[in-house]
């Protein structure tokens, strides 16, 4: 359940920034979680609400965008979508696949509200 410690670090990061921005509270946090990032979005949603309790992010909605991965074949150079690590090249069936994208795990942005409620 690494999602819990990850949820805590997300809350810590957005809260720190929100305080710098003088926010009253945080209404939304946008995450980019690639399909190969090793994160279960559902589990993260669940942990986030627990991790955010009592913080500026307590009522924040967690919006998670899950971009698909893209792999490149080490043999023939074809690029194709990959959603797991043991993908094979659809053109030449090679398993020498280099992951180009899909491992992103970013806090994209957050929406802050001025009013303390």
């Amino acid at each position: 359940m690494h999602e819990m410690s990850i949820a805590l670090s997300i809350v810590e990061a957005v809260e720190e920034r929100a305080r710098q921005e003088g926010a009253g509270w945080i209404s939304e946090v946008e995450l980019l979680v690639g399909k190969l990032a090793g994160i279960e979005p559902e589990s993260l949603q669940f942990c986030f609400s627990a991790a955010a309790a009592g913080t500026l992010a307590a009522r924040a909605r967690l919006a998670i965008e899950e971009p698909e991965g893209v792999g490149e074949c080490g043999e023939c150079g074809t690029t194709f979508p990959v959603n797991f690590y043991y993908a094979e090249c659809p053109a030449c069936r090679s398993l020498r696949v280099k992951i180009l994208t899909g491992e992103e795990f970013l806090i994209q942005s957050m929406t802050i509200e001025e009013e303390e409620e």
Binding site: A18, L106, S109, T111
Partner: peptide, 14 residues
Amino acid sequence: GRKVLLEQDVLQKN
């Protein structure tokens, strides 16, 4: 609300 861009790696601190 006001949108604030972070574009920060979640595991940045670690």
